[in-house]
């Protein structure tokens, strides 16, 4: 084989392999939406979309214990807590649950709640019709507000699941906080860094 012929073959191979590497780099990023899609399809991770109810036949013969729970980061000074801690519900029945947010601070901010479920696979059977997690919420200084979530437990919930926990973690949206009292500490760490 001639040298020039070999060189052009080699360069062709080089270009091909660079494209493969670039595609794999893009694939790394593609895993982000892919992961979300997979989570949505399997119902593990349907955050901010109302569900459609397929089956509304109430199954009176079965009772599922619903637990409610909320988490807020310890360093933000306001709290979200469930008003009802525990409810006995029948699959197919329309359930209203309330969460209360107390903001004793002098700041207002926007917040987003992220739902999560225990056991995880219960997620696809908790069909939320209304939820404060569907949108960002604006919380005013000193405000106490009640949020509601309306959902139905899909009667196809596997029969071995006896307790379902619906837990919200509420986050402040970065950069939406106003009137903070962090001035002193900020100045301190600015001086340090």
């Amino acid at each position: 084989m001639k040298t020039s012929e070999l060189n052009s073959q080699n360069n062709y191979m080089l270009r091909k392999l660079i494209v493969v590497a670039l595609i794999m780099f893009a694939f790394g990023y593609a895993l982000v939406p892919l992961y979300k899609k997979i989570c949505e399809v399997t119902g593990v991770y349907d955050l901010i979309k109302p569900d459609e109810i397929v089956n509304t036949q109430v199954d009176e013969s079965r009772t599922v214990v619903m637990e409610f729970d909320a988490n807020t980061r310890s360093d933000i000074g306001w709290q979200l807590a469930p008003v009802d801690i525990r409810m006995d519900v029948h699959p197919g029945e329309l359930v209203h649950a309330t969460f209360r947010l107390t903001n004793p601070t002098t700041s207002s901010f926007d917040a987003q709640a992220i739902p999560s479920y225990g056991p995880q696979h219960a997620a696809q059977y908790v069909k939320k019709l209304e939820c404060f997690c569907f949108t960002q919420q604006t919380i005013n200084a000193g405000e106490t507000r009640e949020f509601s979530v309306v959902f139905v437990i899909d009667p196809s919930l596997p029969s071995d699941v006896g307790t379902v926990t619906l837990s919200y973690t509420m986050f402040e949206i970065e950069g939406t906080k106003t009137l903070g009292n962090q001035a002193v500490t900020d100045e301190f760490y600015e001086a340090k860094s």
């Binding site: 310890s74 360093d75 000074g77 903070g180 009292n181 962090q182 002193v184 500490t185 760490y189 340090k192």
Partner: peptide, 18 residues
């Protein structure tokens, strides 16, 4: 304030209020 609420600049300083 920094003990109650932690530091907004240095994530290593947790809020001890709760």
């Amino acid at each position: 304030d920094i003990i109650l609420n932690g530091s907004s600049k240095n994530p290593m300083m947790a809020a001890w209020g709760p």
